[in-house]
């Protein structure tokens, strides 16, 4: 069972709450999303595993069962080209769930006219494969968002 933890603290809004149809329509995959607290923070690894991709605005961790989880920090943040994001790990590293990977400030993203809503997506999974997916309510960083048997 892969337990997927919230990379940020905030309010759970579900994938439908991401103002980007690619995520809102679950085109990338099923999962959920969190509207983060507007304060400087460090986004964490959602699972134990290998940090196979680390962009400033997004990362993918694959656990020992081959389950890949994408964390996408904000909408259209690729266009910031890393500005406002500080990497705290290196691609290819083994990371433990809860380890800080990217330092950022959701308030700054919002001030720049973009949404900081953070999508947490199970890659190559069907919606039916996920269990106990949170869709609402407050969440603390490190609390479980969904599990993936």
């Amino acid at each position: 069972m892969t337990r997927v933890l919230s990379p940020v603290s905030g309010r759970v809004v579900g994938l439908a709450g991401v103002p980007d149809p690619v995520f809102a329509q679950a085109m990338v995959g099923p999962g959920t999303a969190v509207d983060p607290v507007r304060a400087p923070g460090e986004a964490i690894a959602p699972v134990n595993g290998t940090l196979v991709k680390l962009h400033p605005h997004a990362y993918v961790v694959v656990d020992e069962r081959g389950h890949g989880v994408l964390v996408h920090l904000g909408v259209d943040t690729v266009h910031l080209k890393g500005e406002g994001f500080e990497l705290l790990a290196a691609e290819g590293e083994e990371v433990t769930a809860g380890r800080p990977l990217v330092r950022w400030n959701p308030a700054r993203i919002e001030a720049g006219g973009r949404s900081p809503v953070t999508a947490v997506v199970a890659l190559d999974a069907t919606a039916e494969a996920l269990v106990d997916v949170r869709e609402s309510g407050e969440v603390e960083k490190g609390a479980e968002l969904f599990s993936w048997p």
Partner: peptide
């Protein structure tokens, strides 16, 4: 057919 593989290709 794998989004994980395609994103990993970068």
């Amino acid at each position: 057919k794998s989004i994980l593989a395609v994103l990993g290709l970068d």
